[in-house]
Design a protein around this nucleic acid. Structure first.
Lengths: 213, 213
DNA sequence: AAAAGTCTGTTGCATTTGCAACAAATTCGT
DNA sequence: ACGAATTTGTTGCAAATGCAACAGACTTTT
């Protein structure tokens, strides 16, 4: 396996700094609740402290699409999640979760002391945003479902530092995230298993072989 | 057509501020030259002033993939373009072009005066980065070539404020950017023309109809 | 503990897409 | 202004993918 790849999320120090530097307000949401509407009016940045949440958009016909998924330590909100004027983007609680909210303006404006911590935080937020965008583009950029799956698996494997891992999404949601038909994805998963490239049961995966994707 | 959608690039004021606030050095590159290698060592942020450039990555088998394209007013470089440790990401001159370069640290660190212009610049850079990532994810997220094409066309149309426009990429490069086989894309373009949804000749496109994608 | 809802897993079939290969038009470099 | 390189445009065919539809397992709610 490859070398450890930094997680696209805040570490312990940054989590502490986020609290002490920005003084966020904390809120709890239950499954299915809308944490944030990413539109022009939204001025908040959210930091997920517990649970999982998804960034979803709804198309004309009511189909939901998963743009991004958040785990504890991930940030989202104004500027740190893509947003247009045309389609509604929502951050939605996938499980019960705790979120810390802060005004974007407070984030981007240097504090009186121009403190180093503050600058490091902004940098880290920009970095994680670039990383998550890259992950999705890299995965979606593969022309086959096999390529998308393996690209995503390698990413997760690297970030976890292990060839075995539990997927951060259910298989249904994964199909949505990689923009593939679920049944076609299941078929491909079965093939990958039969060719001994991976071993998987539900959302537990072990990579056996590095293949070119 | 929809309302005007802000361009994912700097406006005149921001271009001026970029120069006066960051004091970039200016360089010229000819077609095919590597402007920047987006790796751990790169500490620069680039602002394209003239010409066009692509963000490309090369896969194991030597295939190039276009991750992003840059036009005058676009920024790229450390933190503002995705970058991993595993794959080489390159910013490459597509035509002869002029670039202004500045240290990322100088961008992210507040200047002595904590000037408003500076903060607005950082904000704008973060915003444009989010927008470009979104565009690509939205386009790649469509399951059919037709969907990808129309999604991209609507975006360009909105950003230009007109139903007629010249594509910012050659058709070959567009196929690459939307991650589709070029011949399959050409076939779909022909269909879109015959169904009178668009009129296109080479890379000049006019949208005739809004369809659900 | 039952019911409702969500998620995994599967199949047949039609359609879309990718691949390979080629010709013609256009653009680029010297 | 010439040749080289790139880009557009096309086709037949095989393979991959999406769609529709269903059954059973697992979770959550009441």
């Amino acid at each position: 396996m490859k070398t450890l790849y930094p997680l696209s999320s805040f570490n312990k120090t940054e989590l502490d700094d986020f609290e002490s530097c920005f003084h966020p307000i904390q809120k709890t949401f239950s499954r299915g609740e809308i944490i944030m509407r990413l539109d022009e009016d939204n001025g908040y940045v959210g930091l997920l402290r517990s649970g999982t949440a998804h960034l979803v958009t709804t198309t004309f016909d009511g189909t939901k699409t998963i743009i991004d998924y958040f785990e504890p330590g991930n940030i989202f909100g104004k500027r740190f999640s893509p947003c247009t004027q045309v389609d509604p983007y929502l951050v939605m609680a996938k499980t019960r979760c705790t979120v810390q909210l802060v005004d974007y303006d407070r984030v981007i404006t240097c504090c009186e002391k121009c403190c180093k911590k503050h600058i490091r935080l902004i940098d880290s937020m920009i970095l994680t945003m670039a990383r998550r965008a890259q992950l999705h583009v890299e995965v979606l950029g593969k022309r086959s479902i096999r390529g998308k799956l393996m690209s995503f698996f390698y990413h997760i494997s690297r970030s976890r530092g292990s060839a075995s891992f539990v997927l951060p999404l259910s298989l249904s949601d994964l199909a949505d995230y990689i923009s593939a038909d679920r049944s076609a994805m299941m078929r491909e998963l079965k093939k990958l298993n039969s060719e001994k490239i991976i071993v998987s049961h539900s959302n537990k995966v072990t990579i056996l072989k590095d293949i070119n994707v």
